[in-house]
Simulated assay, not measured.
Amino acid sequence: MKGKRSLGQNFFINNNLGEYIVEKVKTSNTKSVIEIGPGLGFFTQRLINVFENVTVIEKDSELANNLRLQFPNISVINEDFLNFDLNQIMEIPSTYFGSLPYNVSKPIVKKIVESKSFTNPAYFIIQKEVAEKYIYKKPYSTLSLTTHIYSNCKKILDISPDSFKPKPHVNSTLISFIPKEINIQNIPLLKDLITLSFRHPRKNLLNNLKGTKFQNGSQLYKTYRPSDLSLDQYIEILKYSL
């Protein structure tokens, strides 16, 4: 079956690497896994050997029907993950996993790490360039800062286009998201502050926050660019602004 470009389908085909990836996912030490975008079932076939409960969420109706026939003992949900109510699968602690379509990987990751169901490590294969923006290190990005509120991200390995069919035009990365204990107040305001600070990434903080409710706090680091500041420093700015 050919991948549908409209759904960003690139099917994983590297058997040896697939086994290695599933072994990494297995280290989460949960009995249940939720696979997002299983496609033809390449990883599903391997996940059922190491997890007691496997749930897959597949947007493509044709693929979902094939998965039901191929794996009658798993739960197949034929729905767009971005529209799916995660409260339906919160009862059993689970590990999230998926080789995600490049064009929707960021909203999928955001939905998961910000949800109450995110209580165990999550592992995703995403575009390498995007994966690098999640890693919490200088120069910081909006993505790394806002995601670090909820999780610690770790790059596991890079994956070449040869591991997929059809071959994508970009490299991929397997990345993990480990949930953190959240002790931050005013998270919505903190995310607003970070977003406004990056309106013009090359300008300093004072210019970006001028005329906003965070203007007073920007005085703490007024000559810094937004990518220079850590999450703790943004929290400090927020406290000074309130």
Rank of each mutant, 00 (worst) to 15 (best):
I13G: 06
N16Q: 14
K26H: 09
V33Q: 04
V33F: 10
F42T: 11
T44D: 04
R46E: 10
N49Q: 14
N49K: 15
F51A: 02
N53D: 11
V54Q: 01
P72S: 15
N78A: 14
I89P: 04
M90A: 14
P93M: 01
T95R: 04
T95D: 08
Y96A: 01
Y96T: 00
G98D: 04
L100P: 01
Y102M: 07
S105M: 09
K106A: 12
K111L: 07
I112H: 03
I112P: 03
I112L: 15
S117N: 13
T119H: 05
N120L: 00
P121W: 01
A122M: 10
F124R: 06
F124T: 03
K128E: 14
K133N: 13
S141I: 05
T142M: 12
T142V: 15
T147F: 01
Y150V: 02
K154N: 13
K155D: 02
K155A: 11
L157V: 14
L157Q: 11
I159P: 01
D162F: 02
D162T: 07
K167W: 00
P168T: 08
V170A: 00
S172F: 05
L174N: 05
F177C: 07
N186W: 03
T195K: 12
L196G: 03
K213V: 06
F214L: 00
K222V: 06
T223Y: 00
R225S: 11
P226I: 03
S227T: 06
D228E: 15
D228L: 00
L231V: 11
Q233N: 10
Q233T: 13
I237L: 10
I237Q: 05
S241T: 14
